[in-house]
Design a protein around this nucleic acid. Structure first.
Lengths: 107, 107
DNA sequence: CCTTTATATAAATTACTTGTTATATAAACA
DNA sequence: TGTTTATATAACAAGTAATTTATATAAAGG
């Protein structure tokens, strides 16, 4: 993916997250993805372009259809970044800060 | 957090991710966060507001300073959502789709 | 071949984001 | 109390994003 900006930005839109949730159930064509939303087909096509650009989905060509599915490595790379925060929080730097503060004599 | 839109949107900016990375090392004041960037103090203050609004950081008041630190529960809620995708990818629905396709007799 | 179906692209609109400078506030300090 | 230090807010400009409608393309099917 190499582009966390694009990945997180793509995930920040609820329609796009819903599309991903749908794709978690399996492949779907553009029209299948349009159906559950109150949005036009061009709007969904653009969301798909954003998701593809962010490396979150991939598309096949099958006649006139373009079935989409989740990209295999996408989430791993996001996880990797979040892991840094996760570790920091688990290690509980709050507590460490507290310890450091307590070490200063008075005040 | 309850607001994935805000959380992912906040994470989509590289300056904000850098701020979070810095806070992973421990608490920091606004001016300490301004220092490593080529941005003005108001710009950083705004980024901090965004991060706080997304539930990713919390702030204390300490005299005239506002030390920031990572919010404890933030990442967990993001993880929870990503977990859905993670599971879908691990379960490898690609393969399942393949199976279903193979089940259709000809064509 | 003509029509339908599936999808993409363009142009226009509206709204949000990020940054800047200038200014306000308020605690700390001399 | 007057000044400095730490931070926030306002107003503005520039860039980007999300929609919509209208239109293009291209495979499929009669």
């Amino acid at each position: 993916m190499a582009n966390l900006d694009a990945a997180f930005s793509a995930l920040s839109d609820p329609t796009r997250r819903a599309i991903l949730a749908r794709l978690a159930l399996g492949e779907a064509t553009v029209m299948e993805l349009v159906e559950p939303f109150e949005l036009t087909q061009p709007a969904i096509s653009r969301h798909l372009k954003v998701l593809e650009g962010a490396g979150l989905i991939v598309r096949r060509i099958e006649g006139t259809k373009r079935p989409c599915r989740l990209a295999p490595t996408a989430v791993a790379e996001i996880d990797q970044w979040l892991g840094m925060l996760r570790r920091a929080l688990e290690t509980n730097y709050d507590r460490l800060d507290g310890v450091l503060a307590a070490m200063k004599p008075e005040k």
